[in-house]
Amino acid sequence: MVSGDAVAEVVKLTKASSGDLVMYGCGRLGQTLLEHGLVDVLNIWIHPVILGTGEAMFRSGARIGLRLDSVEERSTGVVSLSYVRKEPS
Rank of each mutant, 00 (worst) to 15 (best):
M1R: 14
V2K: 01
V2W: 00
D5C: 02
D5H: 05
A6C: 06
A8Y: 05
E9K: 05
V10T: 01
V11F: 00
K12C: 03
L13D: 00
K15S: 02
D20T: 01
L21V: 05
L21Q: 06
G25N: 00
C26G: 15
C26E: 05
R28P: 06
L29K: 07
G30R: 11
Q31S: 08
L33Y: 06
L34I: 14
E35R: 04
G37K: 13
V39D: 01
V39A: 02
D40A: 08
V41D: 11
I44E: 01
W45G: 11
P48T: 10
P48D: 05
V49Y: 11
V49G: 07
I50H: 13
I50W: 13
L51R: 14
L51K: 13
G52Y: 06
G52P: 04
T53E: 13
E55N: 06
A56G: 11
A56E: 12
A56W: 06
R59W: 00
R59T: 10
A62C: 12
I64M: 14
I64F: 09
G65L: 01
G65P: 07
G65W: 07
L66A: 03
L68Q: 13
D69A: 14
D69W: 08
S70D: 09
V71Y: 07
G77W: 07
G77R: 08
S80P: 02
L81Q: 09
S82F: 08
V84Q: 15
K86N: 07
E87G: 14
E87T: 15
E87Y: 10
P88D: 15
